[in-house]
Design a protein around this nucleic acid. Structure first.
Lengths: 205, 205
DNA sequence: ATAGCTCGTTCACTTAAGTGAAGAAATGCG
DNA sequence: CGCATTTCTTCACTTAAGTGAACGAGCTAT
């Protein structure tokens, strides 16, 4: 997990992604932008890296600039994937909020570029720039609303509908993520996903 | 939906529930408490009252002091219950966050005492007492974490496990809520819930 | 190159949820 | 009070997901 501090075009592009994202919630002065950049948030992470293990405590939040990270539980030796986070998505594990050992793993599904921020550091920044408190509140509220809608959709639909729904809303995931991870994300076994996809193909013809 | 302004013992008890709840996040001065009470937040709502309809815009958030409210979608004429909110639980519909027409209904499942707050009003209060911004952020973060864990549990378990899980964590719901609402909350049909319960009883003997 | 893995698919069989119908029990309303 | 409606359960049948096993394709490492 290397820190990224160079000033290549790529690095500049990533910074713009970050600032464009923040601009959706609050406007920043140059001073504030520089304060942010001085925090050494940018990290490049190799595929397969485990960012958080079950049982660990953590103060780290993640924001994906490029790539994909995944959350999963291990239940009776089996991985249960519950979330994928890709470009412009953020994850603060419940373990950070509640200061309890994590119930799940976070790993890096592709070579990725992440923002990694520390809860203590955030408190500092929020003290200096109260704006950030407001931004975090808005962002969290928005996430909560989105999350609730996702949950509702999951509850009110069958595995097949869930797959078709994903095909609409996150077609990229179906391409970039292994089938067995997708299956458990949809709440079914890989064999069932395989069969279900066959069924859908038949219907189309 | 009557406004509640009297000073009976019951009314005092409800105010204490509110202040005890807030005390978990921030501490309030008497002045701040009085400012809150002056906002006419307390409302008593009769069972069956529909608080929000599909398609409506809204700025109202709800906090349950006593009773139970329920969120549900109507899909092809059928109710799909996705959430129950009881004592000490809060609900801000996604429609309020995103300022879009609501996708679901909210109705009152029992005669209830609610706090009903308005988004515009909140902005005012937060301006006067910046503390509230911090409280809202913490509360929302906590909700998000809880919600994510609930979602994860739902995804990684079967309907039977979900029912047993609910029996552990919210035994009150199983008592106070009609079976057909519970069933769709568990993502199954009422007949399946009935059968599933029979199966569990057999196993016990 | 090949032996060992992981991954995706297929198959036969089991188990559980969906469906439609019917009836009993509880609830609400005039 | 009694009639109507809603709610819950049961049943027989259909459909889809879980399970265990097997196989081939693709990757990796020695």
């Amino acid at each position: 997990m290397a820190s990224v501090t160079n000033n290549s075009d790529y690095s500049k592009a990533m910074k713009n992604i970050l600032f464009d994202f923040i601009a959706k919630y609050i406007s920043l002065t140059e001073e504030e932008k520089n304060a942010l950049l001085s925090l050494d948030l940018f990290h490049s992470v190799k595929k397969g890296t485990v960012l958080l293990k079950e049982g660990q405590k953590s103060k780290e939040s993640y924001f994906v600039l490029k790539g994909c990270i995944r959350t999963y539980y291990v239940v009776e030796g089996e991985e249960k994937t519950t979330g994928f986070y890709t470009e412009m998505e953020a994850l603060t594990p419940p373990a950070v909020i509640n200061q309890t050992p994590s119930e799940y793993y976070i790993s890096c599904n592709e070579d990725s570029l992440l923002l990694i921020s520390n809860a203590d550091m955030e408190v500092e920044v929020n003290k200096k720039f109260p704006k950030f408190d407001t931004m975090c509140r808005k962002f969290t509220e928005e996430l909560l609303a989105k999350q609730r809608i996702d949950f509702d959709e999951f509850k009110t639909s069958s595995p097949e509908q869930r797959y078709l729904n994903l095909l609409q809303k996150r077609p990229d995931l179906i391409q970039r993520v292994p089938q067995h991870q997708l299956a458990s994300y949809l709440g079914i076994k890989p064999q069932s996903l395989s069969r279900l996809r066959g069924r859908i193909l038949e219907k189309k013809n």
